[in-house]
Each structure stands twice: as structure tokens, then as C-alpha cells.
Design a protein around this nucleic acid. Structure first.
Length: 560
RNA sequence: GCCGUGUUGGUCAAGGGGUUAAGACGCCUCCCUUUCACGGAGGAAUCACGGGUUCGAAUCCCGUACAUGGUACCA
């Protein structure tokens, strides 16, 4: 059970200092109060008790905003959530964070659902699957957040701010020009246009007049907020360095900060996994958890390492993929506004199993050296304690290697239809499934991506359109031409058309003509295949049949 | 700038006081194959730097450097 490895949250309010901690297990001696006053310890014991009684089902969530394609890092977050939920017998929830109406992109939500479907990471609860804790779209919960924001204002833990975005931008710029940064915090808020500075009547008048406003959290000065991250251990923040973040925007929508806390609470989320980029705003969330819910049922946090650009530095972005020539999105994404198409792993020929596998390894390993994992193995072996702390550069070569391993690991039948589909799209006609199976079996060692099958196996379905003449011409001569002319005649009349028989005929004639068979095999290959690649020549001849073999030989003979 | 988080080969990484510092990808050499792959055998690292602690430090402590994330009425 997760409680043994990841202990409950403790929250203590000690004087002016908020101290919250999560213990790594249940082994801390009961008389060890960690130096805190006894009454504090009592309180934390109490909270630990309620926590243990009510938190019995693991519930995790993935909360993307529908702003575009689903990034590889996003899918990895889904994966870790999913693995953890399945392993603990819990639930995996998809919640759509569509609170920014200016960034909303049509079709993005459906796209996210489709990606999860393709990856096999289907949520238990979501906008389309439903569930007891809906709605699962934050835009549909809009009214709900205001209540919590109002509660905070009433308690003096948040306030109305009437400063316009323009005014704030102006402030930021002047501060920047002066060589420092502007923070909306305890030092400056009394000089700004908000309900803290204004008289109550003044505030009310502005409100009555319909003046646009936001609600900001009032971050206390001189306090310390800390928590234990499941991956990183204890992390502490000084409230003096965190600013009064907007909780409720002028359009009435909550910001991420308010929405995550409220929704995680209402949806009974037990473990919150998200990217490392969220770490700096964790103190805001901790504070909200304290103010709104007294830390009751706060999830355990885990901040996942970033996935970095392969070259240079920084977070991997879609742009890097375009620039360096590899996919970043799970599936093709077509921007509805610009019409731009961004290639996805799926369309580039990745097997979902391989995609999942490589993502799992991008930030975690089980320490055994094993690299290839099925989803069931991952569910069994995945462990938050072994998730890496530091970011990893994405390596597309290694990603392809995973796919190659998966192509070889699985029976052809598992992915045959995907390749079939792809070949059809390329305009090839596959005579029957049986033939396809034999072809795929023959060439699969040479393919790293599903899309490689077109070049590696296309000649089994279609005569080469062009030949690699440079491979043949330098050593071409009349003797060889005579050899192939006679060979065609023999092919036409020989009984049977098996691999061994063809080879036999070929070699017998070569010996009779006093030419080394090896010297003739390459031209033969180019005739059948078009280039210097593919499985054994006689095997190919046997597969494509007598008529096609003869036709291809004669065809190139005429061109030489 | 400020705050947070990191730093083992080109990349991903194991190892967390005494090891010849695993393994994988990629690269190079050779073998197999007179194609391309697959497969096989090899090759390449003073663990960012500087101080401590210790008989002994990649491993513990403190600094420094560098990198990265955040610093929005975006998530």
C-alpha cells in the first residue's frame, strides 16, 4: 500500500510560521516531535489520523490545457500517473484545464483523448467518461471557484485588486529599467490599487460600479512554507519571495493556482504529479491548501524532471522537433488556425508500446538494467522513489531503438495491419495477408520504424521504379549480360520455383560461364530490388514469383 | 537580478564511503554476409571545480562555477 512508502502529510501552524511536512514512512517514533511544541504534535497526530482513515483509494489526475498538440512530456506525466494508479488499484482522472479562454484551441481536447486512447492510457473519469466528481472541464465549474475566492477574501487571506494589466506592465517596465524586478507582494501591495489599501466603502463603490478586478492571494510576510516532494525530498520557500498571485481573473475564471487546489480537493486527489516547472508556484498551492482546507487531504506532490532539448539547453518544445527533425507530439496535430501540420510519433511509425516504453525510461528505471518493458511490467515495477531528479535530454536515436526492439519483440500479427495501412497509403497493392506476413517476417530486422517497411519491402509488391546503376555499371560487361540473358531462358523453363532451385540454377550457370556467383548476385539484386539492400536475393525471387523475376531482369537488361 | 532545482562518458544511466565506475544508445575497428540489416568480438570516462571530514570520497559536509525552471489576469 502506498501509505507504507509515502507517508501522510502533516501540517502544523506554529506561531507565525507554517510548517508542513510529509514523512517518508510511518516509522518515526511517536515521541519524536521534531522539536515542535507538544500541542503542535497533537494537532498533527490528529490530522494524520483523519488522513489515514479517509485516504484509502489512490486518485491521480492529468490536467492538460487544450491549447494544442500533446507534448511527449505531457504523455510521460500521464504515464507515470497511470502506472501509479494501476499499481495502487486507484483511479486515473483526466481533467481539462480550460480556464484560459484566450488560448483555447478547437479540437485540442478531442486530440488529447485520442492520444490517450492510442497510448492505451485511458482515464477512469474524464469529460467523456464521466464520473462522480464532475464536471471534468474547469470552464464548466466556473461558478464553483468564485465561492472559494470569496471565502478567502472574507477571511482576509485574499483581496480585490483593481490594477489594470497595463498599469502592472508599466510598473514591471519601470522596475526593469531601474535594474530590479517588480513583484506584487507584501512590500508594495499597500501602494497599489486594491482593497487592502482602499477604504471598505471605496472598494464597495468600485465593485458596485462594475470596475474590473481580480482576486489575489495575500501571501503572508516572513513565513516559511515547506513540503516533502516524493521525488525531491524536503523543499522550502520563503514567503517573502513569493508574490500575490492572481486567483480569480477579471473574466471570473480561476487561474491555475486556485483551480488545482479546489479541484484536487473536490476530486479527492491523493497524489499530484506534475512537471518540475510547477515547483516555484508550489508555495502558493500550499498556502491555499492551508487557508481553504486546513491541509485536509492535501495530495502528496511529486515534481517530475523536465525533458530537455537534445542539443543546447532548455525544455524540449515543438519547435525543437521541427528544427531537428523528430516528433515531439504523440500524434499528428493540425493547427486549426494556421493549418500547420506537426508530425506525431504515431504517424512517423512508432508502435504505442514502444512510445510508452521509451517515455517510461525518460526519467525512470528500475535499477536492474532492463530496458524493454511491457505496460504490465511497468505497472508492476514502476516506483516513484526511482524517478530521477534531474532532467534528461531527449535522444531520438535511442527512441528509434526502442521501436526497433518492439518490432522484433512482438509477433508480426500485432502490427501487420498498421504496416498494411501504411503501404496502402503509399499506393502499394497487397495481394493477400498471408503474403504480407511472410514479407514482413523477412524484412522486419531491417526496420526501425513502421514507415521503413515501404522502402524495405516495397519491391515485394511493385517492380523497382529506378535502379542503383552506380552499383552495377562499373563492373558490367558482355559476359555478364550474356549470363543474364541465358539465365532468363533457364528461369522460364525450369521446373519448380523454390528458393533452393533458383539458387542452384543460378550457380550452375555461373560456374559454366566461369564467372564467380558473387559477382553476379549484386546485379541480380539491383534488378529485383532496385538497390543494394534487402534479404537474400533468391528468397526475393522465390517470393515475387517466376514471371515477376524474369520481367525485372529483362527490364534492367534493356536499360543497361 | 531574485527564488527554486540540478550537475557520473557525445546521450540515457547504475552505483550513495574501499568497485578494474555496470549496462544501453550513438560512434570507431574487426568477424559474419561478395547487398543492407541482424548477430558476434573489441575500442574510447582521472564521476563540474575548490576546500574540508575520513586511514580512504564519484559517494558525506561547505563553498564556487555552470546549467535549468519560475519570476503573467498562461498553464
Amino acid at each position: 500500500m502506498f501509505l507504507q512508502t509515502h507517508g501522510p502529510i502533516r501540517a502544523i501552524h506554529s506561531g507565525n510560521h507554517i510548517i508542513s511536512l510529509i514523512k517518508q514512512g510511518m516509522q518515526k517514533p511517536p515521541n519524536d516531535t521534531g522539536g515542535f511544541p507538544f500541542q503542535c504534535f497533537r494537532q498533527w497526530q490528529l490530522q494524520e489520523h483523519t488522513y489515514l482513515c479517509s485516504m484509502n483509494t489512490v486518485r491521480v489526475r492529468f490536467a492538460p490545457s487544450p491549447t494544442g498538440g500533446l507534448h511527449l512530456g505531457g504523455v510521460r506525466t500521464v504515464l507515470y500517473n497511470y502506472l501509479f494508479a494501476r499499481q495502487q488499484g486507484g483511479q486515473f482522472i483526466l481533467r481539462i484545464e480550460d480556464t484560459d479562454q484566450t488560448r483555447y484551441v478547437d479540437g485540442a481536447e478531442q486530440y488529447i483523448m485520442d492520444c490517450l486512447q492510442w497510448c492505451g492510457l485511458v482515464p477512469d473519469e474524464s469529460p467523456v467518461h464521466g464520473g462522480e466528481y464532475g464536471p471534468y472541464r474547469q470552464s464548466e465549474r466556473k461558478t464553483l471557484y468564485r465561492r472559494y475566492a470569496d471565502q478567502l477574501v472574507a477571511a482576509g487571506q485574499a483581496y480585490y485588486a483593481f490594477d489594470t494589466p497595463e498599469a502592472l506592465d508599466q510598473l514591471r517596465e519601470t522596475h526593469k529599467a531601474a535594474g530590479n524586478s517588480f513583484f506584487y507582494n507584501h512590500e508594495v501591495r499597500m501602494g497599489l490599487n486594491n482593497s487592502l489599501r482602499l477604504l471598505p466603502e471605496e472598494t464597495q463603490a468600485l465593485l458596485d460600479a462594475g470596475t474590473p478586478y481580480v482576486i489575489r492571494i495575500k501571501v503572508p510576510a516572513n513565513e516559511f512554507v515547506s513540503f516533502t516532494d516524493m521525488i525531491r525530498g524536503d523543499i522550502a520557500f520563503d514567503t517573502n519571495t513569493t508574490d500575490d498571485k492572481v486567483l480569480l481573473k477579471a473574466d471570473g475564471m480561476p487561474t491555475y493556482h486556485l483551480a488545482v487546489v479546489v479541484d484536487d480537493y473536490l476530486m479527492k486527489i491523493t497524489h499530484a504529479f506534475r512537471g518540475e516547472e510547477w515547483l516555484p508556484s508550489a508555495p502558493i498551492h500550499l498556502l491555499l491548501w492551508k487557508y481553504l482546507f486546513g491541509f485536509d487531504h492535501m495530495p502528496q506532490w511529486a515534481h517530475l524532471p523536465l525533458i530537455l532539448k537534445p542539443d543546447g539547453n532548455g525544455k524540449l518544445s515543438k519547435r525543437d522537433g521541427d528544427r531537428l527533425g523528430f516528433p515531439v507530439y504523440a500524434m499528428d496535430w493540425k493547427d486549426p488556425k494556421t493549418g500547420d501540420l506537426t508530425k506525431g510519433f504515431r504517424e512517423l511509425g512508432f508502435l504505442p508500446q514502444a512510445f510508452i516504453n521509451l517515455l517510461a525510461a525518460l526519467g525512470w528505471n528500475d535499477g536492474s538494467g532492463q530496458e524493454i518493458f511491457t505496460i504490465d511490467e511497468l505497472i508492476e515495477k514502476f516506483n516513484m522513489d526511482r524517478v530521477h531528479v534531474s532532467g534528461a535530454k531527449f535522444d531520438f536515436e535511442k527512441a528509434k531503438w526502442y521501436n526497433q526492439e518492439w518490432i522484433r519483440k512482438q509477433p508480426v500479427a500485432e502490427w501487420q495491419s498498421l504496416v498494411h495501412q501504411h503501404l496502402k497509403e503509399q499506393g502499394l497493392v497487397v495481394p493477400n495477408d498471408n503474403y504480407l506476413t511472410r514479407v514482413l517476417e523477412l524484412v522486419k530486422e531491417r526496420c526501425t520504424l513502421l514507415t521503413d517497411f515501404y522502402t524495405q519491402a516495397g519491391f515485394f509488391f511493385q517492380a523497382p521504379q529506378q535502379w542503383d546503376m552506380d552499383a552495377v555499371r562499373p563492373k558490367w560487361n558482355e559476359d555478364k549480360k550474356a549470363f543474364f540473358t541465358e539465365l532468363v531462358a533457364i528461369f522460364a523453363t525450369m521446373t519448380g520455383w523454390e528458393n533452393a532451385a533458383i539458387e542452384e540454377a543460378f550457380k550452375t550457370l555461373a560456374t559454366a560461364k566461369n564467372i564467380k556467383p558473387g559477382e553476379l548476385q549484386l546485379p541480380m539484386r539491383v534488378m529485383l530490388v532496385g538497390g543494394k539492400f534487402g534479404p537474400a536475393v533468391f528468397e526475393i525471387a522465390a517470393m515475387i514469383g517466376r514471371a515477376a523475376t524474369i520481367a525485372r531482369v529483362e527490364n534492367m537488361l534493356g536499360a543497361l
